[in-house]
Computed example of a mutant assay.
Amino acid sequence: MLASVSDSTAYRALIAYYTAEGAVLEARRRRVRNALVHGNPASFAIVESVREYAGFLSGTALSIGLESYVEGREPAAALAKRTDEFIAMQAGQDAASYWRAHLTAKAATGTGSS
Rank of each mutant, 00 (worst) to 15 (best):
I64H: 08
V47G: 05
K106R: 15
I15E: 09
A42R: 00
A101S: 15
A42I: 08
R82C: 09
A78L: 11
A42L: 05
S114E: 14
Y98E: 01
L57Q: 10
I46W: 01
S114Y: 05
P75F: 03
H38L: 15
F56L: 13
A76P: 08
W99K: 00
G112D: 11
A105Y: 02
S68W: 07
V5N: 07
Y11T: 09
A80Q: 15
D94Q: 00
V37K: 05
R28P: 05
L66M: 14
G112C: 04
G59C: 05
V47N: 02
G92V: 02
G55F: 03
A105F: 04
E74M: 12
V50G: 02
G59S: 09
E85G: 09
A91P: 01
Q93D: 08
A96D: 02
I46P: 01
A105M: 03
R12C: 09
V24M: 12
A77Q: 12
I87H: 09
S63I: 12
T9A: 13
A23P: 07
A42Y: 01
A61L: 13
V5K: 03
V5H: 06
H102R: 07
A78V: 06
Q93S: 03
R31C: 00
I87P: 04
T19V: 07
R51L: 06
A35H: 02
V47F: 02
G112F: 01
Q90T: 05
A13E: 14
G22N: 12
V24C: 04
T19E: 15
R82Y: 12
A76K: 05
A35Q: 08
L25D: 06
E71Q: 12
A76L: 13
E85V: 10
Y18V: 04
R12L: 10
E71L: 15
G65L: 01
D7G: 08
I64N: 07
T83N: 03
Y11S: 10
S113R: 07
R51S: 13
E67G: 11
R51P: 02
Y18R: 09
G65M: 04
Y17W: 12
S6M: 09
T111C: 11
M1R: 12
N40P: 02
A20F: 10
S6L: 08
D84C: 02
L36H: 03
F44L: 15
T19P: 03
A107D: 08
A88L: 04
A45Y: 04
G55H: 06
Q90G: 06
T9M: 06
G59I: 07
E48R: 07
M1T: 10
R33W: 10
A16Q: 07
L79A: 11
A27P: 00
A78W: 06
F56K: 08
K106S: 13
S68H: 08
G39T: 08
A76C: 11
G59T: 02
F44P: 09
A27G: 10
E52D: 13
S8M: 08
V70C: 11
